[in-house]
């Protein structure tokens, strides 16, 4: 099948013949109409919008600049360290961890801002009614946003990790540290890949939370605010549950002790710590099994997207 087809009402044969008519209608070429093709086109559209937004460009610049600053600070510390311990942080495998932690700790908020404004902004600006009257289904529009945010997360984490590696390596050249590639094994590469994948999931799940709140509250403010509050509140809730469980006894205490195991942050931290053990030799205190942590994260994604999709599908688009 040819990837494009001509709009039935737009063939040259139907070009206007009326006198005084001052323009000739061209044909309109339509793309494939199957569900996936429409979805891919919409993802491309969402990415184009994100790329053209000043917010995206500023966020990317801030993230890159901060990564550079972190490594440059390490470089400065290394000049006063004769043991050579600090300067080794500029090189892999540690530099990957530093780059990823830099991306995750402050810049999760940036991805929340991007996702929240991408979803809620359509309602805030009123462009939602423009999109919903073009043909694709509301579910396709939601999935396109999810797809675009996933691609943003992949590009963001990959870009920041590679930037960290390159910046660290270049700075280490100034200190003439002997490069040791002994860690570079197939197993290490696999675990590093999984580690990066989990970092992407970390960003993505908060992007999904921001999308959910953006759609729920029909505004950028709701998306951004909801996402940031969740991000900041979760560790506090975990701590409060932990402390409270020691003050009470019985089933309530058991429940409070178990609750943090179902929080997003704890499960993500567990998964990343488990991979960190293989990559950096760091110890992991969490006893949560990986499968259970993954199931919890998946449940969150499915639940949040399910509710967002249902709201999107059922809701009236008014002013």
């Amino acid at each position: 099948m040819h990837p494009t087809e001509t709009h039935p009402s737009s063939t040259p044969a139907r070009e206007c013949q009326q006198p005084g008519y001052d323009f000739v209608r061209p044909s309109v070429l339509l793309g494939r109409r199957d569900y996936l093709s429409v979805l891919l086109r919409l993802i491309a559209m969402e990415l184009y919008k994100l790329r053209r937004r000043p917010l995206t460009r500023i966020s990317a610049l801030i993230a890159l600049f901060t990564t550079f600053l972190v490594f440059f600070a390490l470089f400065l510390f290394s000049t006063g360290d004769d043991s050579g311990q600090v300067v080794r942080l500029l090189l892999p495998p540690t530099s990957i961890n530093i780059a990823v932690q830099t991306a995750l700790t402050p810049f999760t908020i940036l991805i929340i801002i991007l996702a929240g404004s991408a979803a809620g902004g359509e309602y805030t600006q009123g462009t939602i009614r423009l999109l919903f009257t073009r043909g694709p289904t509301r579910t396709q529009f939601l999935l396109a946003k999810v797809g675009a945010m996933l691609i943003c997360c992949i590009l963001g984490i990959s870009g920041l990790s590679i930037s960290g590696l390159v910046i660290g390596y270049l700075l280490s050249l100034l200190r003439q540290v002997p490069d040791s590639g002994s860690f570079l094994t197939t197993s290490w590469l696999l675990h590093t890949f999984l580690f990066l994948l989990l970092a992407i999931v970390n960003w993505f799940i908060f992007a999904v939370i921001a999308l959910f709140f953006g759609i729920l509250g029909r505004s950028s403010a709701a998306g951004i605010g909801g996402g940031i509050v969740w991000y900041l509140l979760e560790p506090i809730i975990g701590q409060v549950c932990q402390l409270s469980s020691e003050l009470v006894q019985g089933p309530v205490s058991t429940f409070l002790r178990a609750l943090p195991d179902y929080l997003i942050g704890n499960n993500l931290a567990t998964l990343m710590a488990h991979q960190g053990y293989y990559i950096f030799g760091s110890s992991s205190i969490s006893t949560l099994p990986d499968a259970e942590a993954l199931a919890v994260l998946l449940a969150y994604i499915v639940l949040l997207l399910g509710i967002a999709g249902w709201l999107n599908h059922r809701r009236d688009i008014t002013n």
Binding site: V28, L30, L130, R134, G135
Partner: peptide, 25 residues
């Protein structure tokens, strides 16, 4: 009608073309 404020008129129509199943051509 409301469009994306940070995009030009032409780019807004490009966005809509994609949303309307029009191929990139």
């Amino acid at each position: 009608p409301v469009f994306y404020p940070y995009l030009s008129g032409r780019d807004n129509l490009r966005i809509l073309a994609a949303a309307s199943d029009m191929a990139r051509h």
